[in-house]
Design a protein around this nucleic acid. Structure first.
Length: 365
DNA sequence: CGCGTTTGACCGGCGC
DNA sequence: GCGCCGGTCAAACGCG
Protein backbone atom coordinates (compact mmCIF):
# COMPACT_ATOMS: atom_id res chain seq x y z
CA UNK A 1 0.00 0.00 0.00
CA UNK A 2 0.57 3.36 -0.27
CA UNK A 3 2.94 4.81 1.95
CA UNK A 4 1.93 5.64 5.33
CA UNK A 5 1.71 9.14 4.47
CA UNK A 6 -0.78 8.56 1.90
CA UNK A 7 -2.82 6.59 4.16
CA UNK A 8 -2.70 9.17 6.68
CA UNK A 9 -3.37 11.76 4.28
CA UNK A 10 -6.41 10.09 3.15
CA UNK A 11 -7.79 9.84 6.49
CA UNK A 12 -7.05 13.20 7.35
CA UNK A 13 -8.34 14.41 4.30
CA UNK A 14 -11.76 14.10 5.22
CA UNK A 15 -12.51 17.49 5.44
CA UNK A 16 -14.34 18.42 8.26
CA UNK A 17 -17.69 18.99 7.51
CA UNK A 18 -18.46 20.34 10.67
CA UNK A 19 -15.94 21.98 12.49
CA UNK A 20 -16.84 23.51 15.53
CA UNK A 21 -13.95 25.56 15.59
CA UNK A 22 -14.10 28.95 14.44
CA UNK A 23 -12.62 29.49 11.29
CA UNK A 24 -9.41 30.88 11.83
CA UNK A 25 -8.58 29.05 14.71
CA UNK A 26 -5.86 26.77 14.78
CA UNK A 27 -4.73 25.30 17.78
CA UNK A 28 -1.50 23.91 18.32
CA UNK A 29 -0.48 22.10 21.21
CA UNK A 30 2.89 21.34 22.32
CA UNK A 31 4.20 19.93 25.37
CA UNK A 32 5.55 22.24 27.75
CA UNK A 33 7.11 20.28 30.29
CA UNK A 34 8.42 21.91 33.18
CA UNK A 35 11.29 22.71 31.18
CA UNK A 36 12.29 20.57 28.41
CA UNK A 37 9.37 20.77 26.20
CA UNK A 38 8.57 23.87 24.45
CA UNK A 39 5.17 23.72 23.09
CA UNK A 40 1.99 24.62 24.61
CA UNK A 41 0.58 22.78 27.40
CA UNK A 42 -2.42 22.86 29.51
CA UNK A 43 -1.75 21.88 32.95
CA UNK A 44 -4.41 20.54 34.91
CA UNK A 45 -2.86 19.35 37.90
CA UNK A 46 -5.30 20.33 40.16
CA UNK A 47 -5.18 18.95 43.45
CA UNK A 48 -8.69 18.26 43.23
CA UNK A 49 -8.22 16.16 40.36
CA UNK A 50 -5.44 14.40 41.72
CA UNK A 51 -7.48 12.48 43.86
CA UNK A 52 -7.86 9.94 41.67
CA UNK A 53 -7.32 8.57 38.68
CA UNK A 54 -8.86 9.85 35.75
CA UNK A 55 -9.01 13.37 35.31
CA UNK A 56 -10.90 14.31 32.35
CA UNK A 57 -9.79 17.11 30.34
CA UNK A 58 -11.38 18.24 27.27
CA UNK A 59 -9.28 19.82 24.83
CA UNK A 60 -9.95 19.34 21.46
CA UNK A 61 -9.96 21.57 18.88
CA UNK A 62 -6.77 22.12 17.50
CA UNK A 63 -6.93 23.41 14.21
CA UNK A 64 -4.04 23.64 12.17
CA UNK A 65 -3.74 25.76 9.41
CA UNK A 66 -1.00 24.14 8.21
CA UNK A 67 0.08 24.53 4.96
CA UNK A 68 1.34 21.70 3.56
CA UNK A 69 1.72 18.89 5.32
CA UNK A 70 -1.68 18.30 5.98
CA UNK A 71 -2.56 18.39 2.67
CA UNK A 72 -0.46 15.84 1.56
CA UNK A 73 -2.01 16.44 -1.53
CA UNK A 74 -5.31 15.81 -0.99
CA UNK A 75 -7.42 18.13 0.68
CA UNK A 76 -8.72 20.23 -1.77
CA UNK A 77 -10.72 22.13 0.17
CA UNK A 78 -9.25 24.57 2.12
CA UNK A 79 -11.87 26.72 2.44
CA UNK A 80 -11.41 30.09 1.83
CA UNK A 81 -9.97 32.53 3.59
CA UNK A 82 -7.34 31.16 5.23
CA UNK A 83 -9.12 29.38 7.58
CA UNK A 84 -9.16 25.99 7.20
CA UNK A 85 -11.14 24.66 9.66
CA UNK A 86 -10.33 21.27 9.06
CA UNK A 87 -7.00 21.31 8.04
CA UNK A 88 -5.46 18.89 10.14
CA UNK A 89 -1.89 18.97 10.26
CA UNK A 90 -1.58 15.60 11.48
CA UNK A 91 -1.45 14.36 8.10
CA UNK A 92 2.08 13.68 8.01
CA UNK A 93 4.09 12.08 10.54
CA UNK A 94 6.22 14.89 10.85
CA UNK A 95 5.53 17.62 8.75
CA UNK A 96 6.37 20.49 10.58
CA UNK A 97 8.03 21.96 7.83
CA UNK A 98 6.25 23.90 5.46
CA UNK A 99 7.40 23.01 2.18
CA UNK A 100 5.76 25.41 0.11
CA UNK A 101 5.14 27.60 2.85
CA UNK A 102 5.89 30.94 1.73
CA UNK A 103 7.48 33.41 3.85
CA UNK A 104 5.41 34.38 6.66
CA UNK A 105 5.47 37.78 5.46
CA UNK A 106 3.24 36.94 2.72
CA UNK A 107 0.82 35.38 4.83
CA UNK A 108 -1.59 37.85 5.90
CA UNK A 109 -3.35 36.13 8.50
CA UNK A 110 -2.44 32.88 9.68
CA UNK A 111 0.92 32.08 8.70
CA UNK A 112 1.07 29.48 11.16
CA UNK A 113 1.94 26.07 10.69
CA UNK A 114 0.37 24.31 13.50
CA UNK A 115 -0.53 24.87 16.97
CA UNK A 116 -0.82 22.54 19.84
CA UNK A 117 -2.48 22.76 23.13
CA UNK A 118 -1.08 21.02 26.09
CA UNK A 119 -2.87 20.46 29.29
CA UNK A 120 -1.03 19.59 32.41
CA UNK A 121 -3.07 17.97 35.01
CA UNK A 122 -2.29 16.17 38.11
CA UNK A 123 -3.70 12.74 38.06
CA UNK A 124 -2.81 9.22 38.66
CA UNK A 125 -4.90 7.97 35.91
CA UNK A 126 -3.15 6.99 32.73
CA UNK A 127 -5.07 9.50 30.85
CA UNK A 128 -7.68 12.07 31.21
CA UNK A 129 -11.00 11.90 29.64
CA UNK A 130 -11.95 14.82 27.68
CA UNK A 131 -15.25 13.69 26.47
CA UNK A 132 -13.98 12.22 23.26
CA UNK A 133 -13.18 8.68 22.38
CA UNK A 134 -9.57 7.89 21.74
CA UNK A 135 -7.74 4.94 20.44
CA UNK A 136 -4.14 4.36 21.27
CA UNK A 137 -2.01 3.86 18.23
CA UNK A 138 1.44 3.99 19.61
CA UNK A 139 3.71 4.48 22.51
CA UNK A 140 7.28 5.57 22.68
CA UNK A 141 9.90 6.39 25.13
CA UNK A 142 10.92 9.94 24.97
CA UNK A 143 14.43 10.90 25.45
CA UNK A 144 14.54 12.88 28.57
CA UNK A 145 11.67 11.20 30.21
CA UNK A 146 11.57 7.82 31.83
CA UNK A 147 7.89 7.69 31.24
CA UNK A 148 6.65 6.56 27.87
CA UNK A 149 4.64 8.84 25.71
CA UNK A 150 1.38 7.47 24.39
CA UNK A 151 -0.24 8.51 21.15
CA UNK A 152 -3.99 8.55 20.76
CA UNK A 153 -6.27 9.26 17.89
CA UNK A 154 -9.84 10.44 18.07
CA UNK A 155 -12.22 7.68 17.12
CA UNK A 156 -15.45 9.49 17.47
CA UNK A 157 -15.50 9.97 13.78
CA UNK A 158 -13.89 8.02 11.08
CA UNK A 159 -11.69 10.67 9.67
CA UNK A 160 -11.15 12.78 12.68
CA UNK A 161 -7.59 14.01 12.48
CA UNK A 162 -7.32 14.96 16.04
CA UNK A 163 -4.60 13.30 17.97
CA UNK A 164 -3.26 13.61 21.39
CA UNK A 165 -0.12 12.69 23.19
CA UNK A 166 -0.13 11.72 26.78
CA UNK A 167 2.94 11.67 28.89
CA UNK A 168 3.82 11.98 32.51
CA UNK A 169 6.13 14.61 33.73
CA UNK A 170 9.51 13.18 34.39
CA UNK A 171 9.95 15.21 37.45
CA UNK A 172 6.58 14.76 38.86
CA UNK A 173 4.92 11.63 37.74
CA UNK A 174 1.70 12.71 39.18
CA UNK A 175 1.46 15.29 36.51
CA UNK A 176 -0.04 14.15 33.31
CA UNK A 177 0.68 16.14 30.21
CA UNK A 178 -1.82 15.84 27.43
CA UNK A 179 -1.21 17.52 24.13
CA UNK A 180 -3.91 17.90 21.55
CA UNK A 181 -3.42 18.49 17.89
CA UNK A 182 -5.83 18.97 15.08
CA UNK A 183 -9.45 19.78 14.76
CA UNK A 184 -12.36 17.52 15.16
CA UNK A 185 -14.31 17.20 12.03
CA UNK A 186 -17.36 15.92 13.72
CA UNK A 187 -19.76 17.07 16.33
CA UNK A 188 -18.49 16.87 19.81
CA UNK A 189 -20.25 16.25 23.02
CA UNK A 190 -20.71 19.25 25.17
CA UNK A 191 -17.94 18.28 27.37
CA UNK A 192 -15.59 17.85 24.56
CA UNK A 193 -16.79 20.96 22.98
CA UNK A 194 -15.76 22.97 25.90
CA UNK A 195 -12.29 21.71 25.68
CA UNK A 196 -12.22 22.18 22.02
CA UNK A 197 -13.30 25.70 22.37
CA UNK A 198 -10.62 26.34 24.82
CA UNK A 199 -8.01 24.90 22.71
CA UNK A 200 -9.21 26.66 19.72
CA UNK A 201 -9.21 29.92 21.47
CA UNK A 202 -5.77 29.40 22.74
CA UNK A 203 -4.54 28.30 19.42
CA UNK A 204 -6.19 31.17 17.76
CA UNK A 205 -4.46 33.47 20.02
CA UNK A 206 -1.21 31.94 19.37
CA UNK A 207 -1.65 32.14 15.77
CA UNK A 208 -2.84 35.59 15.72
CA UNK A 209 -0.25 36.78 18.06
CA UNK A 210 2.52 34.94 16.56
CA UNK A 211 2.30 36.49 13.30
CA UNK A 212 5.57 37.92 13.78
CA UNK A 213 8.50 36.15 14.85
CA UNK A 214 8.51 34.83 18.20
CA UNK A 215 11.72 33.23 18.05
CA UNK A 216 13.05 35.57 20.51
CA UNK A 217 11.12 34.00 23.19
CA UNK A 218 13.11 31.25 24.29
CA UNK A 219 11.50 30.82 27.47
CA UNK A 220 7.95 30.62 27.92
CA UNK A 221 6.24 33.54 29.14
CA UNK A 222 3.34 33.34 31.26
CA UNK A 223 0.75 35.73 32.05
CA UNK A 224 -2.21 35.31 34.07
CA UNK A 225 -5.50 36.32 32.96
CA UNK A 226 -7.59 37.13 35.75
CA UNK A 227 -9.36 34.05 36.55
CA UNK A 228 -11.56 34.41 39.44
CA UNK A 229 -12.47 30.91 39.67
CA UNK A 230 -9.65 28.93 38.62
CA UNK A 231 -6.24 30.03 38.42
CA UNK A 232 -4.81 28.64 35.42
CA UNK A 233 -1.61 29.67 33.91
CA UNK A 234 -1.18 30.00 30.27
CA UNK A 235 2.23 29.80 28.85
CA UNK A 236 3.26 30.52 25.39
CA UNK A 237 6.29 28.87 24.13
CA UNK A 238 8.10 30.06 21.21
CA UNK A 239 10.75 27.60 20.94
CA UNK A 240 9.10 24.87 19.16
CA UNK A 241 8.33 24.58 15.56
CA UNK A 242 4.74 25.04 16.29
CA UNK A 243 3.12 27.38 18.63
CA UNK A 244 2.11 25.69 21.72
CA UNK A 245 -0.19 26.69 24.45
CA UNK A 246 0.16 25.18 27.79
CA UNK A 247 -2.47 25.26 30.40
CA UNK A 248 -1.17 24.54 33.76
CA UNK A 249 -3.66 23.45 36.20
CA UNK A 250 -1.21 21.83 38.39
CA UNK A 251 -0.37 24.85 40.28
CA UNK A 252 -3.63 25.36 41.79
CA UNK A 253 -3.66 24.40 45.31
CA UNK A 254 -7.03 23.58 46.38
CA UNK A 255 -6.64 26.05 48.97
CA UNK A 256 -7.36 28.89 46.92
CA UNK A 257 -9.81 27.60 44.67
CA UNK A 258 -12.92 29.50 44.92
CA UNK A 259 -14.89 26.50 44.47
CA UNK A 260 -13.17 23.73 45.91
CA UNK A 261 -14.47 20.48 44.93
CA UNK A 262 -15.38 18.21 47.57
CA UNK A 263 -16.94 15.90 45.40
CA UNK A 264 -16.27 12.36 45.58
CA UNK A 265 -15.91 12.09 42.06
CA UNK A 266 -14.00 9.27 40.72
CA UNK A 267 -10.85 10.32 39.46
CA UNK A 268 -11.69 11.91 36.40
CA UNK A 269 -12.17 15.25 35.26
CA UNK A 270 -15.77 15.46 35.11
CA UNK A 271 -16.70 17.25 32.13
CA UNK A 272 -19.60 19.23 33.02
CA UNK A 273 -21.65 18.83 30.07
CA UNK A 274 -24.11 21.28 30.90
CA UNK A 275 -21.70 23.25 32.77
CA UNK A 276 -19.75 23.86 29.74
CA UNK A 277 -22.66 24.52 27.68
CA UNK A 278 -24.01 26.90 30.06
CA UNK A 279 -20.82 28.64 30.26
CA UNK A 280 -20.53 28.80 26.63
CA UNK A 281 -24.04 29.71 26.08
CA UNK A 282 -24.32 32.07 28.87
CA UNK A 283 -21.47 34.21 29.30
CA UNK A 284 -21.80 35.16 32.76
CA UNK A 285 -19.31 37.73 33.26
CA UNK A 286 -19.69 39.03 36.62
CA UNK A 287 -16.71 41.10 36.39
CA UNK A 288 -15.76 43.31 33.66
CA UNK A 289 -12.80 41.27 32.93
CA UNK A 290 -13.44 37.87 33.97
CA UNK A 291 -16.35 35.75 33.66
CA UNK A 292 -17.55 34.58 36.87
CA UNK A 293 -18.54 31.09 36.99
CA UNK A 294 -21.16 30.22 39.37
CA UNK A 295 -19.83 28.10 42.05
CA UNK A 296 -22.87 26.14 41.90
CA UNK A 297 -22.06 24.38 38.82
CA UNK A 298 -18.60 23.76 39.72
CA UNK A 299 -19.34 22.76 43.13
CA UNK A 300 -22.03 20.47 42.16
CA UNK A 301 -20.29 18.78 39.41
CA UNK A 302 -16.98 18.91 40.96
CA UNK A 303 -15.92 20.62 37.97
CA UNK A 304 -12.33 20.33 37.45
CA UNK A 305 -10.09 23.15 36.85
CA UNK A 306 -9.82 22.08 33.39
CA UNK A 307 -13.36 22.52 32.84
CA UNK A 308 -13.37 25.75 34.43
CA UNK A 309 -10.51 26.99 32.51
CA UNK A 310 -11.80 25.65 29.36
CA UNK A 311 -15.17 27.03 29.80
CA UNK A 312 -13.79 30.28 30.82
CA UNK A 313 -11.55 30.53 27.90
CA UNK A 314 -14.12 29.44 25.53
CA UNK A 315 -16.71 31.68 26.82
CA UNK A 316 -14.64 34.54 27.69
CA UNK A 317 -13.59 36.70 24.90
CA UNK A 318 -11.62 38.68 27.29
CA UNK A 319 -9.46 35.78 27.96
CA UNK A 320 -8.76 35.43 24.36
CA UNK A 321 -7.96 39.02 24.08
CA UNK A 322 -5.74 38.75 27.02
CA UNK A 323 -3.93 35.89 25.51
CA UNK A 324 -3.53 37.70 22.32
CA UNK A 325 -2.19 40.67 24.08
CA UNK A 326 0.12 38.58 26.07
CA UNK A 327 1.35 36.88 23.04
CA UNK A 328 1.85 40.11 21.32
CA UNK A 329 3.76 41.29 24.22
CA UNK A 330 5.95 38.33 24.20
CA UNK A 331 6.57 38.55 20.62
CA UNK A 332 6.67 42.16 20.52
CA UNK A 333 4.01 42.22 18.05
CA UNK A 334 1.54 44.83 18.57
CA UNK A 335 -1.21 43.14 16.68
CA UNK A 336 -4.01 41.73 18.36
CA UNK A 337 -5.47 38.77 16.96
CA UNK A 338 -6.85 39.68 13.84
CA UNK A 339 -7.48 36.75 11.98
CA UNK A 340 -8.11 34.62 14.73
CA UNK A 341 -11.29 34.07 16.27
CA UNK A 342 -14.00 36.25 16.51
CA UNK A 343 -13.45 36.96 19.91
CA UNK A 344 -10.37 38.76 19.97
CA UNK A 345 -10.81 41.85 21.69
CA UNK A 346 -8.95 44.90 21.30
CA UNK A 347 -6.05 43.76 22.98
CA UNK A 348 -5.72 44.68 26.39
CA UNK A 349 -5.01 42.22 28.92
CA UNK A 350 -6.72 42.38 32.04
CA UNK A 351 -3.89 40.49 33.27
CA UNK A 352 -3.43 40.42 36.81
CA UNK A 353 -0.23 41.11 38.44
CA UNK A 354 0.13 37.91 40.11
CA UNK A 355 -1.07 34.58 39.59
CA UNK A 356 -3.27 32.89 41.88
CA UNK A 357 -2.79 29.35 41.88
CA UNK A 358 -3.02 27.94 38.59
CA UNK A 359 -1.84 29.44 35.56
CA UNK A 360 -2.45 28.97 31.97
CA UNK A 361 0.57 29.09 29.93
CA UNK A 362 0.65 29.72 26.31
CA UNK A 363 3.71 29.19 24.41
CA UNK A 364 4.21 30.07 20.90
CA UNK A 365 6.91 28.72 19.02
C1' DC B 1 -16.09 -11.98 16.65
C1' DG B 2 -14.90 -7.38 17.20
C1' DC B 3 -12.39 -3.75 19.32
C1' DG B 4 -8.71 -1.93 21.60
C1' DT B 5 -4.12 -2.22 23.23
C1' DT B 6 0.71 -3.51 22.82
C1' DT B 7 5.14 -3.82 20.57
C1' DG B 8 8.47 -3.53 16.94
C1' DA B 9 9.86 -1.65 12.71
C1' DC B 10 9.95 2.01 9.37
C1' DC B 11 10.02 6.78 7.75
C1' DG B 12 11.21 11.39 7.74
C1' DG B 13 13.19 15.49 9.78
C1' DC B 14 16.73 17.82 12.23
C1' DG B 15 21.08 18.52 14.25
C1' DC B 16 25.90 17.77 14.44
C1' DG C 1 26.78 12.52 5.40
C1' DC C 2 25.59 10.20 9.60
C1' DG C 3 23.22 9.59 13.63
C1' DC C 4 19.49 10.56 16.71
C1' DC C 5 14.77 11.25 17.80
C1' DG C 6 10.01 11.70 17.21
C1' DG C 7 6.01 9.93 15.21
C1' DT C 8 3.11 6.55 12.78
C1' DC C 9 1.86 2.21 10.90
C1' DA C 10 0.97 -2.48 10.99
C1' DA C 11 0.65 -7.15 12.89
C1' DA C 12 -0.22 -9.80 16.97
C1' DC C 13 -2.42 -10.56 21.37
C1' DG C 14 -5.83 -10.04 24.87
C1' DC C 15 -10.28 -8.90 26.62
C1' DG C 16 -15.18 -8.13 26.40
Amino acid sequence: MATHKQLQGNRVEQKGELNDTPSSIMSAQHFMDPRPRPPVTLDVNDPSVSDDKTPEVLVSSTNTVETKSQMLGKRASIEDAGLDQTSQSWGSPKSPKLEHEKPDEQIPEVPFRKARVSVRARSEAPLISDGCQWRKYGQKMAKGNPCPRAYYRCTMAGGCPVRKQVQRCAEDKTILITTYEGNHNHPLPPAATAMASTTSAAAAMLLSGSTTSKEGLSSSSSFYPSFPYASAMATLSASAPFPTITLDLTQGPNTTMPFHRTSPSPATFPLPLHGSQQLLGHPMYASPRLPAIPPVQLGQRNASMVETVTAAIASDPNFTAALAAAISTFMGTPRSGDGANNANAPGRIPGSPQLPQSCTTFSTN
